[in-house]
Design a protein around this nucleic acid. Structure first.
Lengths: 241, 241
DNA sequence: CTATTAGACGAACGGTGTTCGTCACGAACA
DNA sequence: TGTTCGTGACGAACACCGTTCGTCTAATAG
């Protein structure tokens, strides 16, 4: 009856203890949840507690599946790298393929922009990062480069891609912190402030900067990435036999 | 008398409250202490509480001088950049000067290795980073490059320097966490583990990596930095009129 | 069936950056 | 001289963090 449902339980009635929920976590589930949170709320919001919340449990539950947060971040990063599409190697077109690879890796890291903040902290050991490394290393060697120089070139190219993506992720975090959603809106606001600041600098001490502000702010992040990529590709080409 | 000194104060006697110490903090003092701690204990040990400890006070005292930790880190970083020695510009020798600048900046960031972890997060606005920017930008323009390309080249070169120093700082942090003091000892240990791991990879899936492990681990951080620097300098040179 | 193992998870630890409110002191004013 | 105001100094507390330890339970192995 409606009345009986509104009455509190009598104290002599032993409440039926609900059977404890025994949920099944797994490393995969945790990694997926972590990536989802990083994508939607940013890496700064990615705490063990936040992930545990997704499963209605506490952070301690996660430690049966990941050693610590650092390992979790590495797993998330490697998951992301798995999205990089790798073609069959064509050594005669090594430069085109290397450019395409760099852009693809950059695109993937930029899509999950905050995850790039994990990248520089990570030693390449996950399956997907090894897969990508084998592609690039193999491409350069088969194009005729010595393994030693191929190793160095691959390493430097990777640092460049990841470094740029990392910088982009920091801008993304600032954008999020400023409550903005539109990257263009953020860019214009950010650049507007920089330009004003640079224009106000004393031209006696900073003659070039204060004079060429428009040039300093003309290019967005993607322009800059591509410019630097061409620098490096040209440099590698000069060392190709 | 000795006896009277052992007696508790009578309850009607109002204890003389010791005059509270009124210390004078300043932003400079805080920045210096922060840099000292980062250098000796690492950036991970650099908390507001740790700095406050240097002045026998609590973390709240710092906020009268720095807005937040982020601002403090930026101030520390700019302090470090002040150590970069800049020569008079000689545009005819732009490549030598740019190389020397890059190495000098890298050296400074490497000396305060953990501070490089601040660098990528920082928009160039401190006096010393502007000073360095004016040097490089001015050098490239006076060597004949268009302001637009000079801007891009400067930006990419800076990203490269800072990115590499940042990566180095992460290795430094791992070394510290492993309780090692000698960079060479750490490098050999680190590289040894990587080499073993790579050698154990299935050669059917990672034929180039597993075959050329010695080449992959042959070069240390400084070798790698210099190789990449030459790539970029050559790329810039190809765009110089 | 019993014993063992591994996963689940709550409580608590030691830590973080920061805010809020209070106090003390110096400068300025009447 | 007394008072007011502004600023620096700083303690208490907040909200959060990653992690460990110990307990319980379910699943598995013998």
């Amino acid at each position: 009856m409606a009345d009986s449902q509104d009455l509190p339980s009598p104290p002599w009635r032993k409440s039926r203890k609900p059977a404890p929920i025994r949920r099944q976590l797994s490393q995969d589930l945790i990694v997926e949840a972590g990536l989802r949170i990083a994508d939607t709320e940013g890496l700064d919001a990615l705490s063990m507690r936040r992930i545990a919340q997704e499963f209605d449990t506490g952070p301690a539950s996660l430690y049966a599946h990941v050693a610590n947060k650092e390992e979790l971040l590495e797993l998330i990063y490697d998951r992301v790298l798995g999205e990089i599409k790798l073609p069959e190697r064509e050594p005669s077109r090594w430069k085109d393929q290397l450019r395409a690879y760099a852009r693809e890796a950059h695109r993937v890291l930029t899509t999950h922009s905050d995850v790039a903040r994990v990248a520089l902290a990570t030693i390449p050991s996950g399956e997907n990062s090894l897969r990508a490394g084998e592609f690039v290393f193999g491409l350069l060697i088969e194009a005729g480069m010595s393994p030693r120089e191929a190793s160095l070139s691959m390493d430097r190219l990777s640092l460049y891609i990841v470094g740029d993506a990392y910088e982009g992720s920091l801008h993304h975090a600032r954008m999020r912190a400023a409550g903005l959603d539109d990257p263009r809106e953020y860019f214009e606001s950010f650049v507007g402030q920089i330009a004003s600041y640079y224009r106000a600098l004393p031209s006696s001490r900073f003659p070039h900067i204060s004079r060429f502000v428009d040039d300093l702010i003309a290019d967005d992040g993607e322009d800059r990435f591509r410019y630097g990529l061409e620098l490096i590709l040209d440099g590698i080409e000069a060392r190709m036999p």
